[in-house]
Simulated scan of single mutants.
Amino acid sequence: MSKLDETTRTELEAAAFRRLVAHLRERSDVQNIDLMNLAGFCRNCLSNWYLDAAKQRGLPMTKDESREIVYGMPYEEWKARHQAEAPPEALSAFEVNRPRQD
């Protein structure tokens, strides 16, 4: 494969991001804790990374705004509609595997 120019690479990455976000919106049955336990990131992580990117560019954005971009609705609304109580075994696995903040 030939080397991609920076603009094309960015466009492809953006398209992949949009597809990931659309997929996560469609799969509201998949809980964030399950994503964290299996993949080491969740919708909140993705929205935090989006917020970090905005801040690095000097763009004004709040955590609530970045979460709404990822969730497709206000976070509190998504939680009320889709978030289930995490089973004890999922919480235990999360405590063992959660990313540590230095």
Results as ranks from 00 to 15, higher is better:
residue 66 S to N: 11
residue 31 Q to Y: 03
residue 100 R to C: 14
residue 59 L to Q: 14
residue 63 K to T: 00
residue 87 P to K: 07
residue 41 F to T: 01
residue 102 D to H: 15
residue 55 K to C: 05
residue 50 Y to Q: 08
residue 101 Q to F: 13
residue 72 G to A: 10
residue 98 R to H: 11
residue 57 R to M: 12
residue 86 A to P: 10
residue 43 R to F: 06
residue 78 W to G: 07
residue 57 R to I: 08
residue 2 S to E: 09
residue 12 L to C: 05
residue 50 Y to F: 11
residue 94 F to H: 03
residue 12 L to E: 09
residue 102 D to Q: 15
residue 60 P to W: 10
residue 28 S to C: 04
residue 48 N to K: 01
residue 1 M to K: 04
residue 33 I to R: 01
residue 70 V to A: 10
residue 11 E to M: 07
residue 18 R to C: 03
residue 58 G to C: 06
residue 16 A to Y: 04
residue 80 A to C: 11
residue 94 F to K: 03
residue 18 R to H: 03
residue 36 M to S: 06
residue 19 R to L: 01
residue 44 N to I: 02
residue 97 N to D: 01
residue 95 E to Y: 02
residue 65 E to K: 08
residue 59 L to E: 15
residue 66 S to T: 10
residue 66 S to R: 09
residue 7 T to C: 11
residue 34 D to G: 04
residue 20 L to H: 00
residue 56 Q to W: 02
residue 78 W to R: 09
residue 85 E to W: 12
residue 75 Y to R: 12
residue 78 W to Y: 15
residue 90 A to G: 02
residue 71 Y to C: 10
residue 1 M to I: 09
residue 54 A to C: 15
residue 99 P to M: 07
residue 30 V to I: 04
residue 36 M to A: 04
residue 39 A to W: 12
residue 100 R to Q: 15
residue 84 A to P: 05
residue 80 A to E: 15
residue 65 E to C: 11
residue 62 T to G: 04
residue 63 K to C: 01
residue 73 M to G: 10
residue 58 G to S: 08
residue 58 G to E: 08
residue 56 Q to C: 06
residue 39 A to N: 12
residue 80 A to H: 12
residue 11 E to S: 08
residue 21 V to F: 04
residue 82 H to V: 05
residue 51 L to T: 09
residue 61 M to S: 13
residue 23 H to Y: 00
residue 70 V to T: 10
residue 41 F to W: 11
residue 77 E to L: 14
residue 87 P to G: 11
residue 29 D to A: 05
residue 92 S to Q: 13
residue 60 P to T: 13
residue 25 R to M: 05
residue 31 Q to A: 02
residue 32 N to M: 00
residue 3 K to C: 12
residue 94 F to E: 01
residue 5 D to M: 03
residue 25 R to G: 02
residue 73 M to E: 14
residue 97 N to T: 07
residue 71 Y to D: 10
residue 15 A to H: 00
residue 76 E to K: 15
residue 96 V to R: 14
residue 76 E to R: 15
residue 8 T to C: 02
residue 4 L to E: 08
residue 50 Y to H: 08
residue 83 Q to E: 14
residue 82 H to S: 09
residue 10 T to N: 04
residue 86 A to F: 10
residue 30 V to R: 01
residue 74 P to L: 14
residue 21 V to S: 00
